[in-house]
Design a protein around this nucleic acid. Structure first.
Lengths: 194, 194, 194, 194
DNA sequence: TATGAATGAGCCTTCATTCAT
DNA sequence: GATGAATGAAGGCTCATTCAT
């Protein structure tokens, strides 16, 4: 039943989507939508939740925690872009909506935070394996940047129906891993003395 | 006068913002808003345009084309995060809005395309200086990822009022440049044979 | 439910009538008006249509085609003025509105054209019975004039609540039939040689 | 200066005409329009007044009171249709507007009443010359019908840019005079006994 | 005097949301 | 339990009308 909601939200955007259309598309009457899923906002959150959970599961299922870091990252990225590629007009557009509407900023921030945490955890794990360590905040920000870059490529993928998810994952891996690998080996960049 | 519009659009989002509130916030009456800036959509586009132009100028003014690539990138990033830091609830949120609302996707895509082009140009320039070359589409995607990571950190900066723009720029530079530098020297990552 | 709309349109005129007033007058809420009858323009057209149809039916029902021409004309006129007398603030004022507002000129022209056609047909029929014939355009214009005179008396009737519809019909018959009868017998008027 | 107002009212209709457009078309600023001619309604009345007066003068100038009745009627009609033909989009449309908008019904009724009075006077004069007489109210209604027929043909003329005013006047004269002449000679029509 | 600039008021229209059946 | 019917509330936009210059 959420399927109808996801479809309509994707096609129209949050505000332009009307409860009428969602109900009709779901084949039930509007009061039922309210009875089962509450307010329009709650409905959207529910959609977001389900899609987010599915995505996280896809990633988690692919990137087993006992693999080496680069392998985990690669599998995770591949799963992620695969998921987005398969739900182009589903998740990606829904996600884009959520970024803009304040009521959902929190929900989205939570989802992203989970991703960031995972990525940061990977980096941290790899660092410690090399006997190195960097400040938690730096770790978080770098992870945040990587997640941001990934989302950005997901947008790009959603906008290019003919693009290949796997190849996109490879490109992202190039950007992410080469930089991360440097960081892992202690190479850092410092601002010039001005 | 656009200031009021930017403020309200930032606080409420495009749809939730009412022309009434914008007018009141600007200290003028609604018909004046229409007289000066036209439709709500046109008003939003005007905001987007002004903020975008200002940002591009800030970046272009800082990153002179005759500097070495890393220097340009660093200065550009510093200017960018400085700008976002100074217009937290202005630009960043405006930008977030524009990503979500279909009517403005085009306007925004144009702005981002300019940024991507600049970054891609920088990378290409540096590559050629090393006698190397990569496919245009790869260049574009990598640039796209870097821009995405940067936007993502900008979001993070906008959400953390106490964070330091310059430090954020440094972090971004670490991620971007270390990875880019590797690419520039011919190091690439390849997916395992599965 | 159209009744309320007809009443308000009559009292205020098309533009001055507000959907609020129509809804209140109908004892329902505004969204219902939109749900049932659509746009203000569509609502007006619906009023026009219903009143027009009723009137045409009243006339057609009274003036059977197999009667002699003068009998048909008389019965038609009597039915017409009877109808207008019974719907004074309904049809007559509605009709006056429609004449003025461009969007409805077409709708009205169609109705009037049907009337003109009927009248012209009657005249033509009577002429042929006398073995005579006149140019189609002359027939049309004469019919047009008769219809105009009739509408004009309808206005007069609508403005004089105490006047008797039947008597008004008799007067119109005097003007119309005496002139028409002359024409039917070949008497025509020619402009002086100047 | 009224010219601009007449032009705009004709082209757009009363409500659709904006004071802005009128002012601009007149080449002066809006406050001047208000200073010279007051409210939009007053302005429209002024237009109506001027056009009406001009028309009455055209008719009065042509139909000298000392002519025989048929001659007067003919000349009056010719002058009238000539005037309408020369001011097609001016007077006719203005007139049509006035019929629909209640605030002007009074003004228009006055103008029409003057015409009716003139026509009724002519008929009465001719009747008395024949030593006959009919009730004032009957006279008025017949005159009203003739005026109505005439207005109706004026509308027709305004809608047919290629039609010839003089010919239209002749047609009207046929309808009006043949019927009127009968009345003048005591021929009347009576409703059948049912 | 003439005007640019400003506004109060209101209208059409649309939805998210809920009773009464 | 399910729905058709109904609505409160609000929003974008326009325009006749008037100050302050």
């Amino acid at each position: 039943m959420l399927d109808a909601a996801v479809k309509v939200f994707s096609r129209r955007g949050f505000h332009a989507a009307s409860m009428d259309e969602i109900a009709e598309d779901a084949g039930i009457s509007k009061p039922m939508v309210y009875a089962y899923l509450g307010t329009k906002e709650e409905l959207f959150v529910a959609c977001l939740h389900r899609e987010g959970t599915r995505m996280m599961q896809a990633i988690a299922g692919a990137a087993a925690p006992d693999l080496p870091a680069d392998e985990r990252l690669w599998r995770g990225l591949r799963a992620f872009f695969g998921f987005v590629g398969a739900h182009r007009d589903g998740w990606a557009v829904l996600y884009r909506q959520a970024r803009g509407e304040q009521p959902f900023a929190g929900e989205l921030a939570t989802m992203r935070a989970r991703l960031v945490e995972v990525v940061a955890g990977m980096l941290d794990h790899a660092l410690r394996a090399e006997g190195r360590e960097i400040a938690a905040i730096d770790l978080e920000v770098v992870a945040y940047a990587l997640v941001g870059a990934t989302e950005s490529l997901a947008d790009w993928l959603a906008d290019h129906p003919d693009a290949d998810p796997e190849k996109t994952a490879t490109r992202m891996m190039n950007v992410a891993w080469l930089g991360a690998a440097q960081l892992l080996h202690g190479v850092t960049w410092r601002p010039p003395a001005d």
